[in-house]
Design a protein around this nucleic acid. Structure first.
Lengths: 189, 189
DNA sequence: GTCTATAGTGCGATAGAC
DNA sequence: GTCTATCGCACTATAGAC
C-alpha cells in the first residue's frame, strides 16, 4: 500500500505542518489536501495528537535506518565523527520537511517530553560511545557527558537548520567545514 | 504604575505562556489569572498577538539593560568573552520565565521571523565585534561569520536551557566551565 | 478604564449511511 | 474503509453599560 489513503494523509500532514505549524493546521485541511474525507482521517488516527506521534515515529525511524549507526572502531575517531556528522547533515538536507517537522515536534507541547527524550536518547547512543572512546585516549575533553550530549545536539540542530534555510550553501565546503570544525573543536581535550 | 492592570495582565500572561505554551493559553485564562475582566485585556492590547509582541519586546529590553554590552577592549579577548557569557547565562538563570518565553516566541509562527531576526541581530552585535577582533589577532577561526553567529546562539540556548532545567547544576563549576569551554573552543583558531 | 454578556468563528471528533 | 453531515465546545474579539 504505497499510496493508501492513510499514507496520503501522512504526506499531506507533513507538508502542511511544516508550512503552517502543527497548531495552525486543522485536521479538516489535512483531509482536504489529501483528497480524503474528514471522517477518514479519524478512522486511521484516533486523534490529531495520535497522527502527529505516528508521523514523528515514522520519520525518526527513517532517519535511523538511513543514517545507519556504524560500529565504532578503535582508531580514527575524528574521521568516524566526520563521517557520522556528514551522514546526518546530508539526511537533513535531502529531507528538509522531515527535519523541520522534528524540530516542530520538539516544541509542540501536547506531546510529552518523555516521548521526545526517549527518541533522542536512542538517536544519540552512537555519539555517546564515540565521546567516551575519545575521552579514554585523551582526544576529547572530560566534561559532564549529559552536557556534552546536549551541546552536540544543539550544534547539530543549528547546522541542519542553517543548511535547510540556505540550501545554496549546503554544498559549499567552507560552510560544511565550519559546521563540523566548530562541532569537533568544542569537544576536543 | 508598578501594578496597573496592564502590568498584571503581562505578568499573568508570562507565567501561563511558559507553563502551557502560547498557543494553548487562552486570553480568557490570562484575564482570569490577572483578576481582570476579559474585555480589559483587549482594551490594553488590540489582539493576543499584540500582547505576545509587547511582552517579547519588554523582556528583550530588560535583557539588554541588565546584560549591559560593555565596550570591547584590545587585550584579554577570552576573558571578555567569559564575562559576557557568564552575564548572559546568569540572566537566564535568574529570569527563567523570561528566557523560556523568548524560546517559545522563536517557534511561535504568528510572529514574523522578520521581527525575531531584528531583535536577535541587535542582541548579537557585541559578539560579532568580539569575534572579528579575535580573528584579527589569530585567536579565533575565520569561518563564515553568519554561521559562527548562528552556532554561538545555538550554544547559548543549549546552555541556558540546560541550566534552567537543572537548576542545581547552575552553580556547579564543572558544568559552568563545560558550557563556556565548549563554546570558546568551538571558536578557536 | 473596567466590567458583563455574547457574538461569531473554526475546530476536533462522532454518527450513521453506503 | 470511506463518505456526508453535524454536534458541541473553546476561543478571540466586540458591544455597550457603568
Amino acid at each position: 500500500m504505497p499510496d493508501s489513503k492513510k499514507q496520503k494523509i501522512l504526506n499531506a500532514a507533513l507538508a502542511l505542518f511544516v508550512e503552517q505549524g502543527i497548531h495552525s493546521t486543522s485536521t479538516a485541511s489535512i483531509a482536504k489536501a489529501a483528497n480524503v474525507a474528514n471522517g477518514t482521517l479519524f478512522h486511521h488516527f484516533p486523534s490529531k495528537e495520535a497522527l502527529v506521534i505516528s508521523l514523528y515515529q515514522s520519520v525518526k525511524q527513517d532517519f535511523s535506518q538511513q543514517v545507519a549507526p556504524q560500529n565504532i572502531m578503535v582508531g580514527n575517531i575524528k574521521e568516524q565523527a566526520r563521517t557520522a556528522w556528514d551522514n546526518a547533515i546530508d539526511w537533513t538536507i535531502t529531507h528538509p520537511l522531515h527535519q523541520q517537522f522534528c524540530l516542530q515536534v520538539m516544541h509542540y507541547q501536547p506531546i510529552t517530553s518523555q516521548l521526545k527524550a526517549k527518541v533522542l536518547a536512542e538517536e544519540f547512543k552512537y555519539l555517546q560511545q564515540l565521546i567516551e572512546l575519545g575521552q579514554q585516549v585523551n582526544l576529547i575533553a572530560t566534561h559532564p557527558i549529559e552536557y556534552m550530549l546536549d551541546n552536540c545536539h544543539g550544534q547539530f540542530i543549528t547546522a541542519s537548520s542553517f543548511f535547510i534555510n540556505n540550501p545554496k550553501l549546503a554544498q559549499n565546503i567552507a560552510y560544511r567545514n565550519a559546521a563540523f570544525n566548530m562541532f569537533w573543536q568544542s569537544l576536543q581535550a
